[in-house]
Nucleic acid binder design. Structure first.
Lengths: 74, 74
DNA sequence: CTCCCATGTATAAAAAACTTGACATCACGA
DNA sequence: TCGTGATGTCAAGTTTTTTATACATGGGAG
């Protein structure tokens, strides 16, 4: 069930840059559970596009500012 | 199983802009099945972030050039 | 010390994404 | 006309993502 995703993210940094926003609050803002935020922040799997968009929107930054995809695939 | 996604995309246009690339070829390039390309192109559901990145990469455009997310969420 | 709060872990189960294979249609060329 | 390629649909099945609960830990405040 575990899929170490290739996509990395800057969510933790963005949270802190936005007034020490907690995982719970972020989860609440994007309408998902805290578990999901934790899993994504830790890169346990990559989120759906929709969630990615919502996260970027909370921080008012472009998608590529939140998520990074490595050049070469595996 | 059907989830009318809010995310829209410009895949079809991008395919044509790139030498009339067929759905089958695009699917092949991003490593998914033709069915998946069709479903996404039609907006039946939103792809995973990874797939979104791969699609953007095929067309060498930024993510936001391929997918659009409406301002207000439901 | 004791009580929260933020973070994290674990599990099971639901939901969404993706696959496989089979089949239908339409346009186009041989 | 026949065949082939591109697009699309349907249904069933697998995998990944997300939820829901419950519990553990460490730090800070009172």
């Amino acid at each position: 069930m575990a899929k170490p995703t290739k996509v990395t993210n800057s969510i933790r940094a963005l949270r802190f840059a936005h007034g020490e926003m907690t995982q719970a609050e972020l989860a609440d803002r994007i309408g998902v559970t805290r578990q999901t935020v934790i899993a994504i922040e830790q890169g346990r799997y990559s989120p759906s596009l929709e969630m990615a968009f919502q996260i970027a929107r909370v921080f008012t930054v472009p998608l590529d500012d939140v998520f990074q995809y490595p050049d070469t695939e595996e």
